[in-house]
Amino acid sequence: MTTKTLAAGLSAAVFALALAPGAQAQQAPAAPQVSHGAAIAGVCVMSLDNAIGGSTVGQYVQTRLQQIATQVEAELKGEETAITNEAQAIETGRASLSQDAFDKRRADLQVRVNAFQRKATLRERELAVTQQKAIARVGQEMEPLIRQVYQQRQCAMLINRDALLLSNPQMDVTAAVVTALNAKITQFAFDRERLDQQAVGAQTR
């Protein structure tokens, strides 16, 4: 049977979702030294990715998402192990079972496998939504601070540095935004989104 391979693949996929490089904002690798032209007056640049990833709250969110992903992996691993053990028990006892009994146990196991697949898919979606909401919360906290820094630095234009190959660091306001964000918030409580509960709630309305 391919139950173990299937279950393990689903568990790994869910766990990898929250730990993938694109799941949370990452610090950019150090760039080689280059000579820049003069800073352009009124033009500011900022890296949204680095502002989130370099902030205390952003690092907290990443750690919390990893904790939640580990919890999901443990939950799925337990069910995967039970399904695998049952599959092995069915195969081991096949000789002592009638065809009807064997078919019944395999059919029951398939029901469990299907339910496991649905749960793994649901957990994957829940992790994705949890990540999106957590990052959105950081963005909401950061938005007024970006405007504040924009005005303090007398910027006439603010460009996303993540879309630029190179820019003069004198025009970069990322560090100022991170400092302001750290002073405003360092963490907030959140848990895995429960999409199955939301669906039940919607049906009862």
Rank of each mutant, 00 (worst) to 15 (best):
Thr2Cys: 01
Lys4Cys: 01
Leu6Lys: 10
Leu6Ala: 06
Leu6Asp: 08
Ala7Trp: 07
Ala8Gln: 14
Gly9Trp: 09
Gly9Asn: 12
Leu10Asn: 05
Leu10Ile: 12
Leu10Gln: 08
Ala12Lys: 14
Val14Asn: 00
Val14Met: 04
Leu19His: 15
Ala23Lys: 05
Ala23Asp: 01
Gln24Cys: 11
Gln26Pro: 07
Gln26Trp: 04
Gln27Glu: 03
Gln27Leu: 06
Ser35Asn: 11
Ala41Cys: 01
Gly42Val: 04
Val43Thr: 09
Val43Asn: 07
Cys44Trp: 11
Cys44Pro: 14
Ser47Trp: 05
Asp49Lys: 07
Ile52Glu: 05
Gly54Cys: 08
Gly54Asp: 08
Ser55Tyr: 00
Ser55His: 00
Val57Glu: 02
Gly58Asp: 04
Gly58Pro: 09
Gly58Ala: 03
Arg64Asp: 02
Leu65Phe: 05
Gln66Leu: 00
Ala69Glu: 00
Gln71Phe: 11
Val72Met: 13
Val72Asp: 15
Val72Ile: 15
Val72His: 15
Glu73Arg: 15
Glu75Cys: 10
Leu76Val: 11
Leu76Ser: 11
Lys77Ser: 13
Glu79Tyr: 08
Thr84Pro: 02
Thr84Met: 01
Asn85Arg: 13
Glu86Asp: 08
Ala89Gly: 00
Ala89Gln: 08
Ala89Asp: 09
Ile90Arg: 10
Glu91Ser: 11
Glu91Met: 06
Ser96Glu: 04
Leu97Ile: 06
Ser98Val: 09
Asp103Met: 03
Lys104Asn: 15
Lys104Ala: 15
Lys104Pro: 15
Arg106Gln: 14
Ala107Arg: 15
Asp108Tyr: 06
Leu109Ala: 01
Leu109Met: 06
Leu109Thr: 01
Leu109Trp: 05
Arg112Met: 10
Val113Asn: 12
Val113Gln: 13
Val113Pro: 14
Asn114Ser: 09
Ala115Lys: 15
Gln117Tyr: 05
Lys119Tyr: 07
Lys119Asp: 11
Ala120Pro: 12
Glu124Trp: 14
Glu126Cys: 03
Ala128Gln: 04
Val129Ser: 09
Val129Gln: 14
Val129Phe: 09
Lys133Asn: 11
Ala134Glu: 08
Ala136His: 10
Arg137Ala: 13
Arg137Glu: 13
Val138Gln: 13
Gly139Arg: 13
Gly139Glu: 09
Gln140Thr: 10
Gln140Met: 05
Glu141Ala: 12
Glu141Gly: 15
Pro144Ser: 07
Pro144His: 07
Leu145Lys: 10
Ile146Glu: 08
Arg147Thr: 12
Val149His: 02
Val149Ile: 15
Gln151Val: 07
Gln152Val: 09
Arg153His: 06
Cys155Trp: 04
Leu158Asn: 09
Ile159Pro: 14
Ile159Cys: 10
Asn160Ile: 11
Asp162Ile: 11
Pro169Asp: 01
Pro169Ser: 00
Gln170Trp: 08
Met171Leu: 02
Ala176Glu: 06
Val178Ile: 13
Thr179Met: 10
Ala180Val: 00
Ala180Met: 00
Asn182Thr: 07
Asn182Tyr: 07
Ile185Met: 08
Thr186Tyr: 01
Phe188Asn: 07
Asp191Cys: 13
Arg192His: 00
Arg194Gly: 12
Arg194Leu: 13
Arg194Ala: 15
Gln197Gly: 12
Gly201Asn: 14
Thr204Trp: 06
